[in-house]
Design a protein around this nucleic acid. Structure first.
Lengths: 211, 211
DNA sequence: TAGATTGTTAATCGATTAACAATC
DNA sequence: TAGATTGTTAATCGATTAACAATC
């Protein structure tokens, strides 16, 4: 299943949660499409990919669809993540995810500044970066979040991968070199802002939903 | 010029700045490609798009290339941005961009919390959200950065667009509905983290550089 | 039944990749 | 000159879009 499909499924899930909380029991593809900002055909194709079928008269059952998407996206036994770099951005992300997702939780933070280590920040225990190998192994951490300066990002990535991390969400403005079996997603705020600034001047191109 | 090309040009530019600071005068497409995490053919195609030609023996001249990319990406007279939502993430972004880019600067912040307004936060003046229309117009702000909760994002987007903003970088987990001539880029951290978690379990798909 | 929606297939579109001639 | 690199063209690949039959 492709990169983009997974991203859209994640979006659908959040929307479906909202619908279920509002008491909505079924939904049509075009409704989801309108809320997610994509096409109805895309929605139907994506939902077929998770093996769930709708019915022509009722559309898709919200609860059953949530279960199907969850079965595809979530690890049954849950997954643990670690964040490296407790600066402004790191703290913001810790605060955002603290106790939010039962199936995917940030269980450890790391920093090289000893004024930050060995205490709890935004609800998350902060360790020295030297302990990455040990803490990642002990806690079966599979996902790493990198919020250190660009100059340190590659070294941190190497440590994380060496300790067993298989996927990295990278906020540092640097292209990480990792083994081909490691998944890296780089969120480059500077690049995104420059893109927005460019198209703010030049006019928006045909819309697209990449995620 | 497409969305992705602009993103890659922004990456090349940062790399070229680093090279120039190190005293490097010329560079080959495969060198840039290796640093940017894309293919040499992509680099050559992208650089042709900005109208700069290399030479077979020397490759591309770093300084001249920087000038060409800048001429395409930057507004000659500079551009102003505003950030709405001075929470943890908002402050992190303000701190990151404070006084960094002469051609693209965050000149105003907004928040609905009156304990935050009418003072300077991370080097940026913070106004009440009610003043968006006035401040955006007075400062010729074209770019908006949304770091408010999802429930408020659409209202903030409407205010920004109404005041004249043409491009939005949206960190709220919500699909914004705006006029088709407005460019919106949504950076959804939750979606990205779920993608990383998924591929950490399932194994990375063929690599791609979207930005 | 009638009709809107679903799932399937074929056509289109865009971007990437590969092959090759041009160049310093 | 020789050779690696550039710029150009054609082929490939993937995803999206459009058209249509199936269904409740």
């Amino acid at each position: 299943m492709s990169d983009r499909v997974i991203g859209r499924l994640s979006v659908y899930r959040r929307l479906l949660h909202g619908l279920r909380d509002s008491g909505v029991q079924s939904v049509y593809s075009h409704q989801l499409a309108s809320m997610a900002g994509c096409t109805a055909a895309q929605v139907r194709r994506d939902l077929m990919a998770v093996g769930y079928s709708g019915t022509p008269t009722r559309g898709y059952d919200v609860s059953a669809l949530l279960a199907s998407i969850g079965a595809h996206l979530d690890a049954p036994e849950g997954q643990n993540a670690a964040l490296v770099g407790v600066g402004n951005l790191g703290r913001a992300i810790l605060a955002f995810f603290a106790g939010r997702r039962p199936r995917l939780s940030i269980v450890a933070a790391f920093d090289s500044d000893h004024y930050k280590t060995n205490r709890v920040i935004q609800g998350c225990r902060c360790y020295p970066v030297e302990d990455i190998a040990q803490v990642v192994r002990n806690n079966r951490i599979e996902v790493g979040i990198i919020t250190v300066p660009a100059t340190e990002a590659q070294e941190v990535a190497d440590r994380l991968v060496g300790a067993g991390v298989r996927g990295i969400l990278n906020f540092a403005p640097a292209a990480l070199r990792v083994r081909p079996d490691i998944y890296v997603e780089t969120m480059d705020i500077t690049v995104s802002l420059e893109k927005v600034a460019f198209f703010a001047r030049r006019g928006a191109p045909k819309k697209e939903m990449a995620r």
